[in-house]
C-alpha cells in the first residue's frame, strides 16, 4: 500500500525528533569530555582539548581495567553463546515433556536481583577457591545471563525452518553436523544479538566484580570509575566523561560490526510461529 506523501514526510519528521531527543543527553558527555574544567553544567568548552582522553588512555591502570573488562565480557558472552546454542537445539526441535516448565523456571529466575544472591555466591566462591578470578566472575555472569540467552536463542532457532535440516538429514548428517552447517549460518544475526546483549551487560556490570574481586590489578573498568571521585567528593567531570566515552567504544564497535550480518536485525518473533 502506498502512503500519501504528506503522511510519509510527517513520519520522517517524527522519527527525526525522536532521534534528536535520544541524542540530547549525550551532548553533555561529548562537551564535557573535551573540556578540562567540565561541570554538570552544559557549556561549549572554551578551549576544546583531547587532554582528558590522553590522560585516561595513557594511565596504565585504566588500560589494565579495560583489558580486564574485555576478558570478562568476552568469556561471558562466549560461554553464553555456546551453551545456550546447544541448549536451544533440543528445546526448539524436540518434543520434550517438561520443556515449557524448564523455560518458565529459568526465565522467572531473572526477576531475582543479582544483588540478592551475591552473598551466597561470595561464600560459594571462597569455598571453591574461585574468588578473585576473572574467569569465575565470567562464569557467574554467564550463568545469570543464560536464561535470556536460552530464550532468545530458542526463539531464533524456532524461526529456522525444520525442512532444511530434514533435507540434510536425508543426506546422512547427524544433529551436530546439521547444527553447524545448516542452523548456525542461518542464525548468525541471532548469535550476534545474544553476544552483544551479553557483552554489553558484562562489560558494564559494577557490583558483581566489586564484591567478588579482591586484587586491584583484577578490577575491570566499571570498578575503577571511582577514581574520579576525590577525597572530599569532588568529581573530575572532564576525565569522567572522557573515560565514559572510551568505555562505550567496544560496545559501539561490536554493534556496528554486527550490523553487516544483520540484514533483518533482531528477530525474537519465534513465539509467533509456535
Amino acid at each position: 500500500m502506498k502512503e500519501k506523501k504528506s503522511v510519509v514526510i510527517l513520519q520522517y519528521i517524527i522519527l527525526a525528533i525522536i532521534a534528536l531527543l535520544f541524542l540530547i543527553p549525550l551532548l553533555w558527555l561529548a562537551f564535557a569530555s573535551v573540556d578540562l574544567n567540565a561541570s554538570p553544567l552544559l557549556s561549549l568548552p572554551k578551549n576544546p582539548t583531547i587532554e582528558n582522553y590522553v590522560s585516561v588512555i595513557t594511565n596504565p591502570d585504566n588500560l589494565r581495567g579495560f583489558l580486564n573488562s574485555f576478558i570478562i565480557a568476552i568469556i561471558t558472552s562466549a560461554v553464553v553463546v555456546v551453551f545456550s546454542f546447544l541448549a536451544a537445539y533440543p528445546l526448539s526441535r524436540y518434543d520434550l515433556k517438561g520443556k515449557r516448565y524448564f523455560l518458565y523456571i529459568i526465565i522467572f529466575m531473572t526477576s531475582l536481583p543479582i544483588n540478592a544472591i551475591l552473598v551466597p555466591v561470595f561464600k560459594l566462591f571462597i569455598s571453591f577457591g574461585l574468588h578473585d578470578k576473572l574467569v569465575s566472575i565470567a562464569f557467574f555472569m554467564a550463568a545469570t545471563n543464560m536464561p535470556y540467552g536460552i530464550w532468545m536463542m530458542k526463539n531464533f532457532m524456532d524461526s529456522v525452518p525444520v525442512s532444511l535440516e530434514e533435507a540434510a538429514r536425508v543426506d546422512g548428517a547427524n544433529s551436530l553436523v546439521a547444527m553447524r552447517h545448516i542452523i548456525m549460518p542461518l542464525m548468525i544475526p541471532g548469535i550476534l544479538t545474544v553476544s552483544i546483549y551479553v557483552f554489553t551487560g558484562a562489560w558494564g556490570n559494577f557490583f558483581v566484580p566489586f564484591i567478588l574481586l579482591q586484587t586491584a590489578s583484577n578490577f575491570p573498568s566499571s570498578v575503577r570509575i571511582y577514581q574520579f571521585f576525590d577525597n572530599s567528593g569532588l568529581i573530575e567531570y572532564g576525565r569522567l566523561a572522557a573515560y565514559s566515552v572510551v568505555y562505550m567504544i567496544p560496545s559501539v564497535i561490536l554493534y556496528s560490526f554486527s550490523q553487516r550480518f544483520m540484514s533483518k536485525g533482531f528477530a525474537l518473533s519465534g513465539a509467533d510461529k509456535g
Binding site: Y226, Q227, F228, F229, D230, N231, E236
Partner: peptide
Amino acid sequence: KQAASNDL
C-alpha cells in the same frame, strides 16, 4: 579505604 585521587 582509598580515595581515588589524592589519597591522604
